[in-house]
C-alpha cells in the first residue's frame, strides 16, 4: 500500500501566529502526534456528479433573483494535482466569498457594505478527468475586520478541497495578483515564507478571459502526493 508524503509543516502556517489574534486561544500547545498512515488516513469520502447541481459552480447565477449581481465578472479556474504532478480527478472543490462590496451573506457579518440581493457567495464543483475545475463569479471586495487593531483583508476567495483521502483534506484562500493589501494582511502572512504565499496569489489569465464578458484568474492547487512504490505500513516508533 502506498502512503502519502509527510506534510511539510514549515510551509504551512504554524498553529500560533501572534499577529493574527484569534489564534492565541485556539492554537494547541502540544505538538501533534505523528502517525504513519493507517487505512483511516489513506481513505476518504468520494463525491459524484450526483452531489452537485448544474448551477453550483456559477456564483453569478446560483442565487440570482431579479438580475445579475453587481461587480466585476470573473472566471476562476485551474487544475488540482498532487505533489507528484499527477492530476486529481473527482476532487470536490467548495468556495465562498464576500460580494463586490466586501460583505458576506452571513448572520455574523455586520460590515456596513450592503448585501447584494442577487449574490449568495458560495459555489462548488468537481474536477474533471484532467483535474481541471472552473467557477464563474464576481470579484470579491476587501473588507475590514477586528484584529489587535482594525485590519483589512485583501480580496480573497475561500477554497476547500477534498482529494482522494482524508489526509489530503485542505482549506485555503485565493488572493488576486497585484493586490497591495496581501503583504499587509496578518492572515496571508501567517504563512512563514513569502515565496510559499505566492502559491495563493492567482495571476490574471488573459487567455481565458472572455471578450466583452469577463476577466479570468488562474489558481492551480497542489494536494499531498504519494509514493509511487508500495512499502510496509508502519506506525512511527513501533
Amino acid at each position: 500500500m502506498r502512503e502519502y508524503f509527510a506534510r511539510d509543516h514549515a510551509r504551512h502556517p504554524p498553529a500560533l501566529t501572534q499577529d493574527y489574534k484569534s489564534t492565541v486561544l485556539r492554537s494547541p500547545k502540544h505538538a501533534p502526534l505523528t502517525l504513519g498512515q493507517t487505512i483511516s488516513e489513506i481513505t476518504g469520502p468520494h463525491f459524484g456528479q450526483g452531489d452537485i447541481g448544474e448551477l453550483d459552480n456559477d456564483l453569478i447565477r446560483n442565487f440570482a433573483k431579479d438580475g445579475d449581481p453587481i461587480g466585476e465578472r470573473i472566471i476562476l479556474h485551474g487544475r488540482v494535482c498532487d505533489e507528484g504532478r499527477r492530476p486529481v480527478p473527482d476532487a470536490l472543490i467548495e468556495i465562498w466569498q464576500a460580494n463586490a462590496g466586501g460583505r458576506y451573506r452571513h448572520q455574523n457579518d455586520g460590515y456596513l457594505a450592503p448585501l447584494d440581493p442577487n449574490f449568495g457567495g458560495c459555489g462548488r464543483t468537481m474536477t474533471d478527468d484532467a483535474g481541471y475545475y472552473r467557477f464563474q463569479t464576481i470579484k470579491p471586495g476587501a473588507y475590514p475586520w477586528p484584529n489587535w487593531e482594525p485590519s483589512w483583508r485583501p480580496a480573497h476567495v475561500h477554497v476547500s478541497v477534498f482529494g482522494h483521502s482524508f489526509s489530503q483534506r485542505l482549506v485555503t484562500q485565493l488572493y488576486f495578483e497585484g493586490d497591495p493589501l496581501i503583504e499587509r494582511c496578518p492572515i496571508a502572512n501567517s504563512i512563514p515564507d513569502l515565496r510559499t504565499l505566492q502559491q495563493l496569489v492567482a495571476p490574471l489569465d488573459m487567455d481565458t478571459a472572455q471578450p466583452s464578458d469577463c476577466l479570468a484568474y488562474r489558481f492551480d492547487i497542489v494536494l499531498r502526493g504519494r509514493f509511487s512504490t508500495p512499502f510496509e505500513n508502519r506506525l512511527e516508533g513501533s
Partner: peptide, 12 residues
C-alpha cells in the same frame, strides 16, 4: 517523487 509542493493552508 515529490516534484511540486502542497498548497499552503489558510484559516476558514
Amino acid at each position: 517523487d515529490k516534484i511540486l509542493q502542497e498548497t499552503p493552508s489558510q484559516t476558514v
